[in-house]
Amino acid sequence: MKERMTHGCSEALRLALTGGTPARAAWVAAVVGTILVVINQWEALLGMQALSIPKLVLTYVVPYLVSTYTAVSKDLRGRNIEPW
């Protein structure tokens, strides 16, 4: 069981870092993150408030991670591997 889990996790990491997944996730994060910045920080963009850098970073990181998770879990399911 432990070997199977270790194999699944290492395969998930490999898939997350190769095969076009990072580029696709970055594209999704750029589009979705920009939309979310406009929605959530429009006051800062118009100069009415200070821009929150931690929120700005998270606004791009979260869509990147969600996109990566989705792609990796889809690929693992197609290979009948359950890492978690």
Rank of each mutant, 00 (worst) to 15 (best):
A12C: 03
H7I: 06
T18P: 08
I53S: 01
V32C: 07
Y64W: 14
V38Y: 09
Q49D: 15
I35R: 11
M1W: 07
L13E: 10
S52I: 00
E3V: 10
T34V: 01
E3I: 03
S67N: 12
G33S: 12
P54F: 07
V57G: 06
A29Q: 02
L56M: 10
T68C: 11
R77S: 09
V31H: 06
L17S: 10
A16Q: 10
L65S: 08
M5A: 05
A71K: 08
D75V: 08
M48V: 09
Y60C: 08
K55V: 10
G33R: 04
G78C: 03
I81A: 04
D75Y: 10
E11H: 01
Q41R: 00
A16Y: 02
K55D: 11
E11K: 01
S10Y: 09
G8C: 04
E43G: 14
L13P: 03
K2F: 13
V38M: 12
L58W: 00
V62D: 00
E3S: 14
D75F: 09
M5V: 06
L15N: 06
E43S: 14
E43Q: 12
K55I: 12
P63F: 09
T59G: 01
V72H: 03
E43V: 02
T59Q: 01
Y64A: 14
W84T: 01
T6N: 10
I39W: 12
A44F: 06
L13Q: 06
P83E: 02
T34G: 15
Q49W: 04
L46E: 12
L45E: 03
L46Y: 07
K2V: 14
V31D: 03
W42T: 05
I81M: 03
A12W: 00
T70Q: 12
I81E: 04
A12N: 01
V31E: 02
I53L: 15
R14G: 07
L76E: 10
V62K: 02
Y64L: 15
W84M: 05
Y64I: 06
R24D: 08
D75H: 13
D75L: 15
G47P: 04
R79S: 06
K74G: 08
Y69R: 05
L17P: 03
P54A: 07
A30H: 07
P63H: 11
S73L: 14
L58N: 03
C9Y: 07
L45Y: 04
G78P: 12
G47A: 08
A25N: 06
L36S: 04
T59R: 01
V28E: 09
Y69E: 12
L76K: 06
T70M: 10
E82H: 11
S73V: 13
V38L: 13
P22M: 01
S52K: 01
A16K: 06
G78D: 15
L17F: 08
E3P: 04
V62T: 11
A30G: 13
W27R: 15
T34R: 00
R77L: 10
N40K: 09
N80W: 11
G33P: 08
L56Y: 02
A23R: 15
V32S: 05
H7N: 12
A16C: 05
V32H: 05
G33T: 08
T21D: 07
P83I: 00
